Simulated assay, not measured.
Amino acid sequence: MQPTSTVERPAAPLAPNSRTFARAFADVRDAWRQRELWGHLGWQDIKQRYRRSIIGPLWITISMGTTALALGLLYSQLFNQQISTFLPYVTAGFIIWNFILGVVTEGTEVFIANEGLIKHLPAPITVHVLRMVWRQVLFLAHNLIVYVVVVTIFFPTLIEPYQMEGDPVTQPGLSWMALMAIPGFVLVVVNAVWMALLFGIISTRFRDIPPVISSFINLVFFMTPIVWHVGVLNKVTDGEGSWRTLIAELNPIFHFVEIVRAPMLGHAQDWHHWVVVGAITVVGWTLALVAMRNYRARVSYWV
């Protein structure tokens, strides 16, 4: 018989735990470092979509322009508003809404749509989210052409203080304060990333979520002050503090739209919009990081 050795073999090293917040933070950090990758892929998505088109991405601008014009003309007559002030209001709001809509709807299927890359490309899952958000930013950049055209046409009206009917806050006039829309939009983009991460992970596991959100988002559009003004609610109430104003105030999309739209039109920014958006940012990123901590490694199996 062969003598048995009494020396114990060293135990096999344990696999590192992937369900940690450190791994979730590392996924976001590594994805940001690979911005050349998702930046190039996002740009190629637009080029591929309008391949062999004569005017290419200008179709984005034409579509936005015709929609904003139609909504502005219609609702200005319904709410008895001056077209020179109401059309810029609708245009700015609809441009921001279109960005949020694209992030939410495409964010629910961001991992499902990138099934092939997730299975064959060793990259952080946040790369696919940043690619989608960057693509929506490029769409918004095209749509800003419509805003520039509208502001140029109605510039003599916008540079003078005015008051929309039913609005207790008078606009101070378009000025350099319009640049405050930049930090507001940056904050919206930061929230867009966590929304796509959170909804993308949930929707990959439960495939009923995307159609539910697509149906619900249409209702949110009409409940958000985009083609109507908050002052309309005050006109049918006894005062500004009526419960009907909660229709707008309890809608988180309204606050995201307003921190960008208000400076674009020269309106004074209300601090409570920033407070609400800041609180949503903290809570949203916390939920997204928890979801990534627990389920980030399972996304490749769920797709």
Score class of each variant (00 low, 15 high):
152 T>E: 05
19 R>C: 11
74 L>R: 00
169 V>F: 13
92 A>N: 06
230 V>E: 12
153 I>W: 08
170 T>H: 03
171 Q>A: 07
54 I>R: 09
220 V>N: 03
238 D>I: 09
122 P>G: 10
166 G>W: 00
86 F>I: 03
176 W>I: 11
209 I>F: 10
111 F>R: 00
258 E>Y: 10
43 W>T: 15
248 A>Q: 01
265 L>R: 01
201 I>V: 12
241 G>D: 06
184 G>F: 03
104 V>A: 10
63 S>R: 11
84 S>C: 13
31 A>E: 03
125 I>Y: 11
263 P>D: 03
118 I>F: 08
199 F>C: 12
135 R>L: 10
104 V>I: 05
184 G>P: 02
270 D>S: 09
245 T>W: 04
58 L>W: 02
49 R>V: 11
147 Y>R: 14
195 M>H: 09
100 I>N: 14
16 P>R: 13
116 G>M: 12
72 G>Y: 02
288 A>V: 07
198 L>D: 06
63 S>F: 06
108 T>N: 10
9 R>M: 13
147 Y>N: 14
279 A>M: 13
37 L>W: 09
157 T>N: 13
20 T>D: 04
283 V>E: 08
81 Q>E: 12
288 A>Q: 11
134 W>L: 11
31 A>W: 06
92 A>R: 05
87 L>W: 08
17 N>H: 12
164 M>A: 02
131 R>F: 05
273 H>M: 04
119 K>V: 09
192 A>W: 06
248 A>D: 07
197 L>D: 05
181 A>E: 07
149 V>A: 08
108 T>L: 12
14 L>R: 08
149 V>C: 08
295 Y>W: 15
191 N>V: 00
303 V>K: 05
293 R>L: 00
204 T>D: 12
63 S>D: 04
32 W>S: 11
289 L>E: 00
135 R>I: 12
164 M>Q: 06
161 P>L: 03
231 G>E: 02
48 Q>C: 12
217 I>C: 04
280 I>C: 11
103 V>H: 05
70 A>Q: 14
155 F>S: 11
268 A>T: 13
51 R>C: 05
210 P>C: 04
117 L>Y: 14
248 A>K: 01
150 V>A: 01
256 F>A: 09
224 T>G: 04
93 G>Y: 01
71 L>Q: 04
46 I>S: 01
154 F>Q: 00
168 P>V: 03
51 R>M: 02
115 E>I: 14
226 I>M: 03
235 K>N: 14
31 A>G: 10
156 P>W: 01
57 P>R: 00
137 V>W: 03
252 P>N: 06
191 N>W: 06
110 V>M: 10
124 P>W: 02
122 P>Q: 13
154 F>H: 01
43 W>K: 15
216 F>M: 15
123 A>I: 13
